[in-house]
Design a protein around this nucleic acid. Structure first.
Length: 257
DNA sequence: AATGTCCTCAACCGCATGGGA
DNA sequence: TTCCCATGCGGTTGAGGACAT
């Protein structure tokens, strides 16, 4: 099997699945699909969304990059301190550490740790060990000064204003219908509802039987707009991690009350 | 300007886990 | 209880940009 290196145009010949960096079009397709249908089954998602990706790849892209609640850009000193503290407590349990920070993914924290924080933490620990056990207890209660972190890890120019992702670029404010505003304000997406809608491919009915929403706690767009559901349905939607759709549900539900 | 080296981070891989049949 | 499958997690890779020579 010929396997090309990671690049935007790379594919695996045998499976015809794309690998490597995601294109803007792929991002838009995935976002459009999830905006409309929510997250149900990652295995089905790429096929239904018209993507030549594995479900795993789609999940990763969504969870680590496209998810509206993701915070892009530099880590604050407060976040650095939190990561260092949590890492001292629980080691490389990145997903657990990520749950202690708002809008940061385990992958992002892991990378940030290895590139910026590890050296600082090791040096800090060595200093503390030299200073003795009593001093350790004192210092653990006293976060390092901001400049301490910068001293070990001066920010590179490339890290400043690092939010250069195509999906997070700010576009023209959509005007008009509430759908546009909701998507824009809560998904981090620059596309309007209409623009996203133009990317939607018809989803074969056999992939999602119409009772799927009720049996699995998910909602289809038609039921979304006319939502009359209860809070348990909404809660399960939140469990699915789809912030946008959950917000849309709340909006519609509030209007229907 | 050209080349080499280092660094960052998005994405992949393999394994673990949990739930359903 | 066992098996299968989808999802989650953590380690690792490598493309591409920044920086040094």
């Amino acid at each position: 099997m010929v396997k090309y290196s990671r690049s935007a145009s790379s594919t695996t010949v045998k499976t015809c699945l794309r690998k490597g960096a995601w294109s803007l079009e792929e991002d838009q397709k995935l976002k459009a699909y999830i905006h409309r249908y929510g997250i149900r089954n990652w295995v089905v998602t790429p096929k239904a969304a018209g993507l030549l990706r594995t479900g795993k790849s789609c999940r990763l892209r969504w969870m680590n990059y496209l998810r509206p609640s993701i915070k892009h850009g530099n880590f604050s000193h407060e976040e650095d301190e939190t990561i260092i503290k949590l890492h001292q407590q629980m080691g490389n349990r990145w997903s657990t550490i990520a749950s202690g920070l708002t809008g940061r993914t385990d992958n992002e924290i892991k990378n940030h740790w290895h590139t910026n924080l590890k050296n600082y933490s090791m040096k800090n620990n060595n200093l503390l060990q030299e200073a003795g056990k009593d001093q350790i207890e004192i210092d653990q209660k006293t976060p390092p000064e901001d400049d301490d972190i910068l001293l070990y890890n001066p920010p590179k120019q490339s890290n400043i204003n690092a939010d250069c992702s195509p999906s997070s670029s700010s576009g023209d404010q959509p005007a008009g219908v509430i759908y546009n505003q909701i998507i824009e304000e809560n998904s981090g997406s620059s596309e309007t509802y209409v623009e996203l809608q133009s990317l939607w491919d018809p989803v074969p009915a056999e992939l999602f039987p119409m009772d799927y929403g009720t049996t699995h706690g998910f909602l289809f767009p038609n039921s979304l707009w006319g939502f009359q559901g209860n809070t348990s349905t909404l809660a399960s939607y939140y469990d699915a991690g789809d912030d946008v759709s959950a917000y849309l549900l709340m909006q519609v539900n509030e209007e229907s009350v």
